[in-house]
Structures are given as C-alpha cells and as structure tokens.
Simulated assay, not measured.
Amino acid sequence: MKKIIAFGASSSKNSINKQLANYAAHQFENVEVELLDLNDYEMSVFSVDKQKVNGIPQLAHDFYAKLGSADLILISFAEHNGAYSSAFKNILDWASRINGNTFHDKPMFLLATSTGPRGGSTVLEIAKNRFPFQGGKVLSSFSLPTFQDNFDAEKGITNLEFKNQLTEIIESIAF
C-alpha cells in the first residue's frame, strides 16, 4: 500500500491547513495516510553557529526520515506575510542541512488555504517554484480561498466547484 505523508505547514493547534491536508490526503484511494504535526518537530531557530556547536537536532533527522518514507508528500501551506510560516521554514532549514535533496525526489501535491480570497496563493507559488531545487517533484497544486466559507470540519470542502477541482487533481495524480 502506498503511503502519503501529509501536514499543514503551520504550528497552529487549530490549523486550517492541517485540516485541509488531512481532508485531501484521505480523498486518495487505497493509501495509508500519516498526518504530521509540526509542533512535534519544534527546534531552536536554525543558525550555522548552533549547528557548529550542537550539530543537527534529532528532530530534524526524524522529519527528514518521515519525508523519505513517503510515496507522496502532501503539504498545505499557511501564508504568513506572503511566505512560509516560521515554524515550517525552520524545520525546512534544519532538514536541508542533512541533505540538500530535502524531499528525496518524492512526488508532491501542494495546497494552501487561508481565510482570505487568495487562499494562500502567494506562498503556494513560492513552494511550487522552490521545491524542485530541493528534490521535490511537484505534481500539482490546489488553493482553497476563504476557508471558513468553503470548508466544514465534518463535510470537508462544501463549495462544489472547489470540491470537483480537488477531485479532478487527485484523480490525475499517479504515484
């Protein structure tokens, strides 16, 4: 059985991106889904000085290994000031010190959502353009605008147009 490693790239306990990542990952058929929580990988802020003194934290190694165990990596991005959340960026910085091929040449499905009408599209574009340089094979992406109007915790995506768009993307992804 193929394995999806999924997470919301946010440390919020009630992360809407974690909800979207979980929902989207479970729309794939005949897969095992492992949902990560970035709070389980909280480390000191990356710096080369800290790495020199203390080495790379075990949590960075653990996160890097989780990515390597995936057949598909599914990430839904929170947008903080137009870019990655600091929690995700810090984990990415530490993991990239283990190997520049941070994403292990794995296929990726990238998503984003926000409470605004652009649905995290700026951070999604950053990730789509950056991750191929770090061993990510970006297969597709999806943005869900105005999360509170288009998603229900019990029903998932409630807007039929967005739900159909996500379904079409998932059906097109072969991994």
Rank of each mutant, 00 (worst) to 15 (best):
D149N: 15
I98D: 02
H104G: 07
D93C: 03
I91E: 00
R118P: 00
G82I: 02
K137H: 15
A78F: 00
P57M: 07
E125S: 11
N90R: 03
H61E: 15
V45W: 09
F109K: 14
Q148D: 13
D105R: 08
M108I: 10
F109C: 08
D152R: 05
P145W: 01
L74P: 01
I126V: 13
F63K: 03
I98Q: 06
V138W: 00
P117C: 01
P107V: 05
P57W: 09
P145H: 01
N159S: 12
S85G: 02
L111S: 11
V53A: 13
P132M: 07
V45T: 14
A70E: 13
L72K: 04
T158A: 02
I56H: 03
F151N: 11
L110P: 00
S140T: 13
N129R: 12
K106P: 02
W94I: 00
N150L: 09
S143L: 06
Q134V: 02
Q134K: 04
T146R: 06
H61I: 15
S69W: 02
K50P: 00
D152I: 04
Y64I: 08
E154K: 13
Y84D: 03
S47Q: 10
N81H: 06
A60E: 13
K50Q: 11
I91V: 15
T102H: 05
L67Q: 02
G135K: 14
T113H: 04
G135L: 05
S85A: 10
Y64G: 01
L72R: 02
G156A: 10
N129V: 02
N150S: 09
K155H: 08
V123A: 01
S141Y: 13
A65I: 13
I91Y: 00
Y64Q: 04
L160W: 00
V53D: 14
G156D: 01
V123G: 04
D93Y: 01
I157V: 12
V123F: 02
T158W: 11
D152F: 06
A78T: 14
L74C: 04
L110S: 06
Y84I: 00
S86I: 02
L160Y: 02
Q148A: 09
G116Y: 07
L72T: 11
E125Q: 15
L110F: 09
L160S: 03
G116E: 12
A95I: 08
H104F: 03
L72S: 08
K89Y: 03
I73W: 00
T115Q: 12
L59K: 15
G135V: 06
Q58W: 09
K52E: 14
K66T: 12
D149R: 09
A83F: 15
N101A: 08
N54K: 12
F142N: 03
Y84F: 15
S114A: 10
D93E: 10
N90D: 09
N90L: 05
F77E: 05
L72M: 04
Q134N: 11
Q134I: 04
